[in-house]
């Protein structure tokens, strides 16, 4: 490995230590990983995200099993297509593993906001940007770490939910394998959704440079905006379409196995969430790059 010596006029006689010592992107990522792993709050939040995801999946499994049991005992509505309803329940059952993202997203979002917001509030950012003065590298390394954590929670949470759901669903003949129609893509999309939410939240945190502000803004987009749009859609039909383009709704469409012409397809939903993530990440990168630390 060669180090280029530019300042030939420099009279310092200090010997160079190890020439392998230099800043690289992967090392910055490693450092961000240590940061995340050395805070108790990270474990707490990620554990709650995982537990929440599994818990919600389990509840959903119970509710689907319950509906199926009801159908078996009492039969469907008069004249209903019994087979069609059962098929519908089968889709519900296969959607169970990904259901938990609706809870996990809030925790992932909070962690991602704090990953950078707390650096600004503790002034740690000064230290970070002194060690990693290439600011895009500094932000992207953070992003990669939180994306990995969010993706892992998504995959792990969905797989555990799947495993937990099977004994609940099997008595109703609603059990299925991971290779069943739509299951694997749904699980993958769930993890991708959480990763994109992490990117969006980190971007917002980087723009607002503050935990409280970042959390309010992020949770506002995820929780409050859908409520507002839902209320407004009662006023005018135009707002219904707006609702489709909110990240929470688009995320739901991403992981859905049941398709409907009124909803987005998984890929479309993914593109919508990606757009939210890209805009926020772009803003966050610009804010860190061009504003004083």
């Amino acid at each position: 490995m060669t180090t280029t010596e530019t300042s030939s006029n420099d009279a310092t006689a200090v010997p160079r230590r190890d020439s392998g010592t230099r800043l690289t992107f992967l090392r910055a990522v490693h450092a961000e990983w240590i940061k995340l792993a050395s805070l108790r709050s990270s474990y707490v939040i990620l554990s709650i995200a995982l537990l929440g995801m599994v818990g919600v999946g389990m509840l959903r499994a119970f509710s689907v099993a319950d509906m199926a049991a009801g159908l078996a005992v009492y039969g469907g509505p008069a004249g209903a297509d019994q087979e069609g309803i059962l098929k519908e329940f089968g889709i519900f059952a296969r959607e169970v593993p990904a259901t938990g993202i609706m809870v996990a997203q809030f925790l992932i979002a909070s962690l991602a906001v704090m990953q950078i917001g707390s650096e600004y509030s503790t002034r740690m950012i000064t230290t970070t940007l002194t060690a990693v003065p290439r600011r895009i590298t500094a932000v992207l390394s953070k992003m990669l770490v939180i994306v990995a954590a969010a993706f892992a929670v998504g995959i792990l949470g969905a797989l555990i939910s799947y495993a937990v759901a099977q004994p609940i669903l099997q008595p109703q003949d609603l059990g299925y394998s991971l290779t069943a129609d739509g299951v694997a893509p749904s699980i993958l999309y769930a993890a991708i959704f959480l990763a994109l939410i992490a990117v969006m939240s980190l971007g917002i945190g980087a723009m607002l440079r503050n935990n409280a502000g970042g959390l309010v803004a992020t949770l506002g987009i995820l929780m409050i905006l859908p409520v507002i749009v839902a209320i407004l859609s009662g006023v005018g039909d135009g707002f219904k379409d707006v609702g489709l383009f909110l990240p929470t709704s688009a995320g739901g469409d991403m992981v859905a196995i049941r398709t409907s012409p009124e909803r987005l397809t998984p890929v479309q939903g993914g593109l919508v969430v990606l757009a939210w993530a890209a805009v926020a990440a772009g803003g966050g990168l610009a804010s860190v790059k061009y504003r004083d630390a």
């Binding site: 300042s7 800043l23 805070l39 707390s118 002034r123 230290t127 002194t130 600011r135």
Partner: peptide, 29 residues
């Protein structure tokens, strides 16, 4: 040392800085 700080391959080998001792995450060791 002849370059803008961020332009160095190993910034920490060029400059060691103590700006504000409190630039540390308090929950980390």
């Amino acid at each position: 040392n002849g370059r803008p700080y961020a332009g160095h391959a190993a910034p920490l080998q060029e400059v060691g800085a103590l700006l504000d001792a409190k630039s540390v995450h308090p929950a980390r060791s």
